[in-house]
Every structure is written in structure tokens, then in C-alpha cells.
Amino acid sequence: MTALEHALKELKEDVILMWIMVESQLTMARKAMLEYDQDMAREVMQKEKRINAYELKIDEQCEDILARYQPVAIDLRFILAVLKINANLERTADIADGIARYVIDAPEPFDHQLLQSSHLLEMYDHGIAMLADTRIAFEQENTGLARSIFQRDEIMDVYNLEALDIITHNLSQGSPLIRQQLLVLSIIRKLERVGDQAKNLAEEIIFYLEAKVLKHHSQTNI
């Protein structure tokens, strides 16, 4: 194995680790929300610092490889993709951090009936699964799996639109949980962003493996 191949292998391992950490952050924030566990929410916020440090580490590795090895072709595309993947993962971790902050701010446990009826939990699980599948696509160089993310993001968009109708309906019916209704809607907005980030990640995986730029393309062209 050449020095460049070794450096790329190490970078890929670190990106996968970052991916797993971000998935874990989302899962913990979900649990904190569901169980109204504010200690766990604080742990998510604490671990966010570790994610930020890891983002910088991966950026530095990319800079080092660019400076020392001047990669070309698939190696260059890999580095360019990792730079964007790294930023997308960090933003996804910010979403987990934001959800954890809502848990801290919530004066009472979330109403489980509301979490179900607004489809928030389904959407949450869908988002975590999308993120995990983009990681598997990256790890296994599976562009078919990466492409499947695009349709799944559309489902997230539908959930997001439906949630607005549901919450509006609840509020118009005089629901007493006004603050909770608004918090749930805010979390749903954040989860919609998880779907967008997963889509961005999938685009980068396809760019790196197939040299195709899918950003700003309609789905019919994909």
C-alpha cells in the first residue's frame, strides 16, 4: 500500500467514525426527548464539542493529503467529497444539539400522543435510518444505496408538510399544549434538515465514486 493509499484509508475510517458519532448524537437526543431525560440532553450538548473537534481533525487530514500527495482522479474526488461530507455531518450533529436544547427548555415531558400523531417519531427514525444508510453506502462504495436516499428525502418533506397541518389543526381545536405543539413543530423542521443533509451526503458519495455532479439536478436526471 502506498503512503497515499494508507492516508486515504485512515481518513475514510475517521469519517466513518464521525458518521457513527453523529448518528449516536441523534439517537441520544431522541431518547432524551422521549424520556424527558435532561441529563442525557446535556450529554448530547457536551459531546457536540467532541464532534466539532473531530470535524477540525478531518479537515486537517484533508489539507495534509492535498499538500503532501496532490491526489488526482478518484483520490481527488474522495478528498473533495470528504470535505463536504465532514461539514454536512457537523451540521447534522448541530441538529441533534438543537433538539437536546429543546428538551432542556421544555418545562414538562413531551406528550407521547402528540409525538405519535404528528409523525415526529416516524420521521425521526426515518432520518436516522437515512443517515445510517448513507454511511453504509460510503463504506461499501454503494451508489445504488446512495441513490435510494433521494426518494426517501421526499418522504421527509411530506412528513414536514403534513406536520404543519396537524399542528395547525390541534391549535385550532384549542389544544392546551400550545408550547409543546410549537416545540414539536420546531423539532420536525430540524428533522426535515436531517433528510436534506442525508441527501447532500448521498450526492457527495456519487460524485466521489462516479464523477457525477448531482447537486441542483432534478430527480428525473439522477
Binding site: 502506498t2 497515499l4 493509499e5 491526489p71 488526482v72 482522479a73 478518484i74 483520490d75 481527488l76 474526488r77 464523477a211
Partner: peptide, 17 residues
């Protein structure tokens, strides 16, 4: 050629493999 070579032999050569 240096970002998206079409032939695997080109890619192998320019990436040192």
C-alpha cells in the same frame, strides 16, 4: 483526465496504483 479519467488504466497510473 486528472479529475475523471475514462479508462481504468489511466486512473491506475495517475493515482499511483
Amino acid at each position: 483526465l486528472f479529475t475523471a479519467p475514462q479508462d481504468q488504466r489511466t486512473q491506475n497510473y495517475i493515482t499511483g496504483r
